[in-house]
């Protein structure tokens, strides 16, 4: 998705919007999409099959487009000097708020499929909880994202089934990857500061903990049918679910900020 201009929100102070909580929500979603988009774009040019290379690159471009739109919305909400690029790029690594699920490095193809499957299914539940919310600038954007994410779900679902159904190495690799990332899967639903205000304001349909339950219920039939373990709806690392990112993100951050850091303040 190309970044599209979003409707200008009414000044936050005038409407009694829960600005801090919205900041936390938009930042978490934007960082999620930015990090998974950047990570999976790394397959561009080296994916297992040319046709899949093109598909995976499109998916990561969609996620990056979503990130750009969400950062844009956040910039308008905050109303300061920071634009979408500054929000996306000009923070220290420990200031990013993406889910720890996305902190496992690219890994092999099975790892990419496992992580994407868990993230896409969680993101779908989160987007559903934002659909029809009371803050129009966000619901408009969510509507666009949902349309694209539907295709992502079909794509990743097909890969999960293929790898799970193939005996031997593909299934072994998938199980290994799931074992590595599943404990962090529910970090997508790590509690957000002030989330009760978002529920109160009718922006978010339910608290994150409840969304985690919905997500687990949504993926259980598929995983059971494929004989795969169902991940917990509470993350092992819940208290630091969106902080404390570790080595793979340190590498990613040093890469994506390299050019900008080389000449701070320059236009690119």
């Amino acid at each position: 998705m190309t970044p599209t201009p979003v409707p200008t929100p009414t000044p936050a102070s005038a409407t009694g919007l829960p600005v801090d909580a919205l900041d936390a929500l938009l930042r978490s979603m934007a960082d999620d999409e930015f990090v998974i988009g950047f990570s999976d774009s790394e397959w561009t040019g080296i994916a297992p099959i040319l046709e899949e290379d093109i598909a995976m690159s499109s998916l990561s471009q969609d996620e990056l487009g979503h990130a750009a739109a969400l950062y844009g919305l956040l910039a308008e909400l905050l109303g300061g000097d920071a634009d979408a690029d500054a929000l996306a790029y000009d923070r220290e690594p420990d200031q990013y708020r993406h889910a720890r699920l996305l902190d496992h490095g690219r890994g092999d193809w099975a790892m990419t499929i496992a992580r994407r499957y868990l993230y896409e299914t969680a993101d779908a539940v989160r987007l559903a909880a934002l659909t029809g919310g009371s803050w129009a600038p966000l619901t408009g954007l969510v509507g666009k994202m949902v349309r694209e994410e539907r295709y992502h779900a079909m794509h990743i679902g097909a890969w999960l089934e293929r790898l799970a159904a193939a005996r031997g190495e593909p299934r072994d690799r998938l199980e290994t990857a799931l074992a590595a990332v599943a404990p962090d899967a529910a970090t997508v639903f790590a509690a957000l500061e002030g989330e009760a205000d978002l529920v109160q304001a009718g922006i978010l349909a339910a608290p994150m903990a409840e969304l985690a339950e919905r997500w687990q219920a949504a993926i259980s039939p598929t995983l059971s049918r494929l004989g795969l373990r169902i991940p917990s709806s509470t993350a092992a690392s819940a208290s630091r679910g969106r902080t404390d990112h570790g080595e793979p993100f340190a590498w990613l951050w040093s890469e994506f900020t390299m050019v900008r850091r080389s000449d701070p303040g320059a236009a690119w």
Binding site: D53, A67, V259
Partner: peptide
């Protein structure tokens, strides 16, 4: 340089461009 593109717009453009080259190869 795909992982080092310095703005959101450049990142999207470069990813799409490299993807096009893969598409041409295909």
């Amino acid at each position: 340089w795909l992982m080092r593109a310095p703005t959101l717009r450049r990142k999207l453009a470069l990813t799409a461009k490299v993807q096009d080259e893969v598409g041409h190869a295909q």
